[in-house]
């Protein structure tokens, strides 16, 4: 738990220790730093400020003399909203504003980074990509993020032929979501389907993926059900949220209402393993009833 008071005393302690051990007076700041580095004990060299992103915001109350501290903490338990953050004049406290920027940084990195090739290899995914040439085009041209080149469509036709279920992983708006959840959800999903006697073949990985790309994949592979696991647009609470879009025999330009969606898959929402089991049930039900989306009455 870090607040300004703690931080100030931490800084004060470090400075004090440096002063005690470094007896050279009136040196210039650069020399002082070098000297401090040389003379600092290994304990100080290892010293590190606490990770503010590990703080549970719901338990942190920064209002200095609240009318009712207990009551305030109870209020905070009921919402993830950033309340009880107090102020510096009318502005934010330094630490809450750094935490906000840290959470925003994570969200931006999740959007603008790529799923690592190592993960794609490790999970044995078959990589393909949409028509977008880079992230910028992906973000500004949703129409291109749902289309593939003729070569890619032909590749899918040859590689994957009429599977019962085609699982697809797509980066979407959060690569971090895929990095965080794919390795857990895929085995759970496969295991769940296996229990219903459904085997899963090659799993595709789509770079620069928009949700309707699954419709093209459905047509190209002639799969009965396509299940797309895709990164959601990140919020500040988590950048690791993934969704599953599942449809029975999806076709290009079909109504959105034909998709069944399982959203909020992340460790603070529905954990990946649990989601995998749930999705395998949904898929089984779609295969039985030959439908999906709002027509799928469970």
């Amino acid at each position: 738990m870090v607040n300004d008071q703690d931080l100030k005393s931490l800084v004060a302690t470090i400075v004090k220790q440096m002063m005690n051990e470094d007896t050279v007076a009136n040196v210039n700041p650069a020399a002082e730093t070098a000297a401090a580095q040389q003379s600092a004990s290994s304990e100080e060299q290892d010293a590190c400020l606490p990770d503010i992103t590990e703080l549970d915001l719901k338990k942190e109350l920064l209002v200095p003399n609240p009318y009712d501290r207990e009551g305030y903490l109870k209020m905070k338990e009921r919402t993830p909203a950033r309340i009880g953050v107090w102020r510096a004049g009318p502005r934010y406290k330094t630490m809450t504003s750094l935490r906000f920027r840290a959470d925003h940084a994570a969200a931006q990195d999740a959007v603008f980074s790529y799923v690592s090739e190592d993960l794609v290899k490790k999970l044995n995914l078959v990589p393909i990509e949409t028509l977008c040439k880079d992230k910028d085009e992906y973000l500004t041209r949703p129409d291109l993020g749902r289309q593939f080149s003729d070569e890619t469509v032909n590749f899918m036709k040859v590689r994957v032929r009429s599977p019962k279920v085609q699982i697809v992983v797509g980066d979407g708006l959060s690569s971090a979501a895929i990095e965080a959840n794919a390795a857990d959800i895929i085995p759970a999903l496969k295991q769940g389907l296996k229990m219903y006697g459904i085997e899963v073949g090659d799993i595709l990985f789509v770079k620069h993926c928009r949700v309707p790309s699954m419709d093209v994949i459905g047509e190209a592979t002639d799969a009965d059900v396509v299940c797309l696991l895709v990164g959601e647009r990140p919020g500040l609470v988590t950048a690791e949220s993934m969704s599953a879009y599942i449809a029975y025999k999806p076709t290009v330009d079909m109504p959105e209402a034909r998709r069944t969606v399982v959203s909020n898959i992340h460790k603070g929402g529905t954990p990946a393993v649990e989601a995998g089991a749930h999705i395998s049930e949904l898929i089984k039900s779609m295969l039985d009833k030959k439908t999906s989306g709002i027509d799928l009455k469970l």
């Binding site: 919402t79 909203a81 953050v85 102020r87 502005r91 934010y92 959470d103 919020g235 500040l236 609470v237």
Partner: peptide, 25 residues
Amino acid sequence: GIPHGDDVMLNYQTTGYHETPTLRE
């Protein structure tokens, strides 16, 4: 006006409780 500018339901950021008093002043 939203707590610390972070909308925990719509997942976007807007002006927070602290912005309006600052602008007023």
